[in-house]
C-alpha cells in the first residue's frame, strides 16, 4: 500500500492504454511517454505495460506503507527519498514509512513511478489508464490526490534490473519530432510548409495529455474550403484557420475539424509525453522508406532488454 501525501500538478495511473476504441470516441490514453514508462517497469522487474504512476511537472509526495522496489524514469525531476537525492533510471528499495518527493522537471515533463508488482486501479475497456475528461480507469477516473491509498497489484515476475548505458532517453527542453505528411498537407501554403520545417515552435500553457497548442510563425492555408470533421490520431499536427498549430496527444480527440498537416512517426510518439509548457518543438521530415526502418531498429534495440515493448 502507498499513501498519496500530495498529488502534485497532475499524477495519474497509466498502463499501455485502450487502443481500438477511437470509433466510439474513446481516446487511446495510456502512458504519454511509453518508453520511459516501459523502462520504469523494466527496472522493478515488471512486464513493461503494468500500471504505474505518471507525474506531470512534479509536486508528488508518496509514503510507502510497506517495503518495496520502485523506479523513477522519464522527466529529470528533483527526486528525494526521506530528503536524500536519488538517481532516476535505477531500481530503488524503499522501506515502510519512506517518503518520496518529486519536484521541478528540469528537462521533460512526465516522470513514471513504477512499483514492483504494479499498481492497481479501475479497469475500463481492458485498460486501467486514467482518462480524466470522462472519468475512466485509474483511481476513480481522476488524478490522484492527498489521502488516496494505492494498492500494489501483486508480485513482480522478475527481480530488480539495471539499465545498461545508452538505453536511457536523453531529454531536452527542445524536442525534435520526425514527421510524415498527414491527409491535408497539400492545403498548406508554400510558406506554411517551409515555416513548419524551418522555424521553432513553443508549447503554450494549453499543453496537457490531450494535446499542445503551439505558438510560432503563422502557418497559412491555401485551401479556403471548410473542412468536414474527420478522424484524428495521436501525433497529428492540426492547423486551425488562425494558423497556430495544435499537436494531438495520447488523450487527444478522436475526430477533428482542422486541417491535419503532419503526423509524428510512430518511433517518436513517446516524445509527446515530454512536452511541457514552454518546451521548444521542431518538426523534421522523415522519408517514407526510413520511417519503418527507424521503428524496426528502435524495436530491435529495446526488445533486447524489454521483451514485447512496442512504441
Amino acid at each position: 500500500m502507498i499513501t498519496v501525501l500530495n498529488g502534485g500538478t497532475r499524477t495519474t495511473l497509466q498502463d499501455d492504454g485502450r487502443a481500438g476504441h477511437r470509433d466510439k470516441g474513446i481516446p487511446t490514453s495510456g502512458a504519454a511517454d511509453r518508453l520511459s514508462f516501459a523502462i520504469a517497469n523494466f527496472l522493478v522487474g515488471n512486464r513493461w505495460n503494468m500500471p504505474a504512476l505518471e507525474c506531470a511537472l512534479g509536486g508528488l509526495h508518496l509514503r510507502f506503507e510497506q517495503a518495496v522496489t520502485i523506479a523513477v524514469s522519464g522527466a529529470e525531476m528533483w527526486g528525494q527519498i526521506n530528503g536524500q537525492n536519488f538517481a532516476i533510471n535505477r531500481a530503488l528499495h524503499v522501506e515502510k514509512g519512506d517518503i518520496l518527493t518529486l519536484s521541478y522537471a528540469r528537462a521533460g515533463c512526465r516522470a513514471y513511478i513504477a512499483v514492483a508488482g504494479g499498481l492497481s486501479g479501475e479497469t475500463f475497456l481492458g485498460s486501467q489508464s486514467t482518462y480524466i475528461p470522462a472519468g475512466l480507469g485509474g483511481i476513480e477516473g481522476r488524478a490522484v490526490k492527498s489521502g488516496d491509498k494505492l494498492s500494489i497489484a501483486g508480485a513482480a515476475p522478475y527481480g530488480p534490473q539495471s539499465l545498461p548505458n545508452g538505453y536511457a532517453p536523453q531529454l531536452s527542453k527542445h524536442i525534435i519530432l520526425r514527421t510524415r505528411p498527414a491527409p491535408e498537407w497539400d492545403w498548406l501554403s508554400l510558406e506554411g510548409k517551409r515555416f513548419l520545417f524551418t522555424t521553432p515552435f513553443y508549447a503554450t500553457d494549453a499543453t496537457d495529455r490531450m494535446g499542445s497548442r503551439l505558438k510560432g510563425d503563422k502557418i497559412t492555408l491555401n485551401h479556403s474550403q471548410p473542412m468536414v470533421s474527420a478522424p484524428l490520431i495521436p501525433g497529428s499536427l492540426q492547423i486551425p484557420p488562425h494558423g497556430q498549430p495544435i499537436l494531438i496527444g495520447i488523450d487527444g480527440h478522436c475526430t477533428g475539424g482542422y486541417a491535419r498537416a503532419l503526423q509524428v512517426i510512430q518511433a517518436d510518439i513517446w516524445l509527446l509525453g515530454q512536452i511541457a509548457p514552454g518546451s521548444g518543438i521542431s518538426f523534421r521530415r522523415c522519408f517514407a522508406e526510413n520511417a519503418p526502418k527507424i521503428l524496426a531498429s528502435r524495436h530491435a534495440f529495446y526488445n533486447g532488454l524489454i521483451p514485447n515493448f512496442r512504441f
Partner: peptide, 17 residues
C-alpha cells in the same frame, strides 16, 4: 488497431510490425 469512421472518410491505424 483503430478503424475510425468519418462522414466521408475512414482512418485505419495498423500494427507496424
Amino acid at each position: 488497431i483503430d478503424i475510425i469512421t468519418g462522414y466521408d472518410s475512414l482512418v485505419a491505424t495498423f500494427n507496424s510490425t
